[in-house]
Computed example of a mutant assay.
Amino acid sequence: MTSSAKKVSRPTGRKKSKKRRGPGQTLSKRTKKLNKLSPKPKRAQPTSKKIVSSLSSRSNSELLAMWQNCLEKLGDEQQKWWHASAEKVLRKIGAEWRKRANASEIPEGQFAWPSTVAERGVESLGFVQAPKEGMLGYLGYRVGDTNGLDSGSRQRILAEVFRGSLPPLDSPEYLEQWGEPKSVARLKKLAETIAALTRNAKRRDASRLSTAIGDWEDDLDFLYVEFYIGRFGFSWPSVNG
């Protein structure tokens, strides 16, 4: 053989050993594959049946807290799975409020004879004494730096006040001023209430109350765009004067 001849490598008879995977690694890989193939379990929808069945025995303050809680859930995109139930409970609370308002009305020319017996729970199921802020204050609508709500929360309250039934607040006469849901009377009362609050604040101290005034003006714009344009023709209230 010449020196230029190529060396031929001889087989040794040994096979290269493949790196073995531990049982844990194999199972982990299989589990990941199965997880990708199998559908993720859907979150169980919350049931509102038990809540709805208890509404007639709840006090007005409890109904109000539930109403506010439903609006809070509807404003939270991370709780979308709750939205359908929250909408249903809102409608049922409205129906309960209407029922209580109608039951508290006394025919014209008659009046209820006063009683000296203090029955527990009776007052909490009739008309509620109105706070200084009126309907909006009772429902939790607040503006300004100190205890004001963010715009989304305020406007959800206003939208529900326009669309839904209202609690039996103060008296049948006061409730009648707010008209029916989605009516011209309801929107007019809402707009005039907020415009009056804005005008009064400007007269008192426009500089100190600038945040509250700005919140009210933003909310009036919201009502104007969302519910007034193309639907109603009454004179929109002014915030000046």
Rank of each mutant, 00 (worst) to 15 (best):
G126I: 03
E105N: 03
N60Y: 05
P181T: 06
L27C: 06
S61W: 05
K16E: 03
F222R: 11
K15C: 05
E173Q: 00
N60V: 08
A118M: 07
D221N: 14
W81R: 10
A5R: 03
T211C: 12
K6H: 05
R43F: 08
V161F: 05
K202H: 12
N200K: 05
S235T: 06
R203F: 12
N60F: 07
I106L: 04
S28F: 10
G144Q: 03
G24A: 13
K6G: 09
G94V: 08
V52N: 09
G152V: 12
K88C: 11
D76A: 06
N102W: 00
F111V: 08
P168F: 14
Q79E: 15
G144V: 07
R186K: 00
R100F: 02
R14C: 00
N60R: 06
T47V: 02
T193K: 02
L187A: 10
N60E: 09
V89S: 03
S183E: 08
K15N: 07
Y141R: 07
I157K: 02
R154K: 09
E217R: 12
W236D: 10
D76R: 01
L90H: 11
E77D: 13
A195R: 10
P131D: 04
L175P: 00
Q68C: 14
E192C: 04
W81G: 11
A195Q: 11
D76E: 06
E105D: 09
D205E: 09
T211K: 15
L223Y: 13
E72T: 15
E226V: 11
G109V: 08
S57R: 11
L166R: 14
Q78G: 12
P181C: 02
R58A: 14
S153N: 04
L64A: 01
S238Q: 15
I51T: 15
A185N: 02
Q129K: 09
V143R: 11
K99V: 04
E176S: 01
S38G: 05
S104A: 12
W82E: 15
S57L: 05
S115Y: 03
Q177H: 11
D219K: 05
C70G: 09
K73V: 15
D145A: 05
D150K: 04
A95E: 14
A206F: 03
V161G: 12
T211N: 06
A95R: 11
K42T: 10
V8E: 15
V89L: 14
S48N: 06
